[in-house]
Nucleic acid binder design. Sequence first.
DNA 1: TAGCATGTCAAACATACGTTAGTTAGCCTT
DNA 2: AAGGCTAACTAACGTATGTTTGACATGCTA
Lengths: 207, 207
Amino acid sequence: MTTKTREASVRTEADTATRERILLEASRLFRHHGYAATTLREVADAAGIKAGSIYYHFESKEQILGEVLDKGIQAVADAVRQRVESLPKDATARMKVAAAIEGHLWGLLHHGDFTSANIRIYGQIPLAAKNRHRKVRREYADYWDALLDEATRRGELRRDIGATVARLFVIGALNWTVEWYNPQKGSFDDFVKQITTIVFDGTFVRE
Amino acid sequence: MTTKTREASVRTEADTATRERILLEASRLFRHHGYAATTLREVADAAGIKAGSIYYHFESKEQILGEVLDKGIQAVADAVRQRVESLPKDATARMKVAAAIEGHLWGLLHHGDFTSANIRIYGQIPLAAKNRHRKVRREYADYWDALLDEATRRGELRRDIGATVARLFVIGALNWTVEWYNPQKGSFDDFVKQITTIVFDGTFVRE
DNA sequence: TAGCATGTCAAACATACGTTAGTTAGCCTT
DNA sequence: AAGGCTAACTAACGTATGTTTGACATGCTA
């Protein structure tokens, strides 16, 4: 099992530029056509090179998939952590969750191809790729769990719904916004405000 | 453009049985591996026949896809309409939406392979298949729009969130439950109750 | 200026795919 | 008993895919 491409030690500008280009176009194609339906010739075409040249930058199609998946999670996780950590220490759980929602949506929608590809194709990729990626997902889920557990302990979360159901439902709902959010219809800030309201207080007027 | 399989006029028991079997296994494989990654040889294997025999029942792989997609929507739409229509005429909008949520979740989770396949792969299928399927989707979306419009007119829906955002967010959230709902952890009725509470009143205690 | 690493290319390989064609075993009707 | 329909089979076809190989420019280094 030897590395067939050159060592990852030195990386020139042209190298990384093309590499990033491949990842970008691959994520876009994975998102819209799925992993299996996307051919390396299509990726190469979109990146302005020939199919064989991809193998100078990556070992296999699956390695590209792996990096695309990781980037998708990372973009979101970074944005969330950054916003939550910049909050004052005595912030309420509600404030923390609000910051997390804003960060999640921001990361999600500003790296649409990577995040949407991740969400859409994760359930369909080869098992090997899934196993490799599972850990990154688990860590992000744990972060939210901790956030919601704190809310529960402080009595801010409703007690008639389970914390797990709440987390899965809310994150699922947030994730899916990348499939329909249209930045041309209203500002991002306004969008976040509406979503946050729904998550916290629901869609109906209190009876 | 002639029909290559036999006319759809007479259909024996063995015929329809195998046909249904093919659709069932195809939906399961589409759900878990995607449309492009699923081969007709896999579908045939799972259905207990040989690949070539599929062409006695279907004209092409894409026709199978079309029927799988339609079944996914139909299962949900039927359940929703049935529950909403069996409500008394003076039902509040909240009662109607609650019935719709229950129906949506029921149809979704009781035909998991068809509905999940639909949700997961719709964004990735060939354009021709997408165009053919679009109408069925639109009709179901219109049904929800009407329901939520009524809620808005009656003043039951919060006025600080848009009706379109509410519909897209809620339906997206409901749809995604099929990816994580575990019937072994609590009853379906209990699950529906929690989800409905979140949708109506949110996840946090009112300040 | 000679030599070497870099990034890309064209061409080929083996494999796997959707689909087609021709055949056949069992059953119902006559 | 014969004929025809049904539902499956086997075998093949053409095409497309991921990947490999060896050659070729370009620019940096000695």
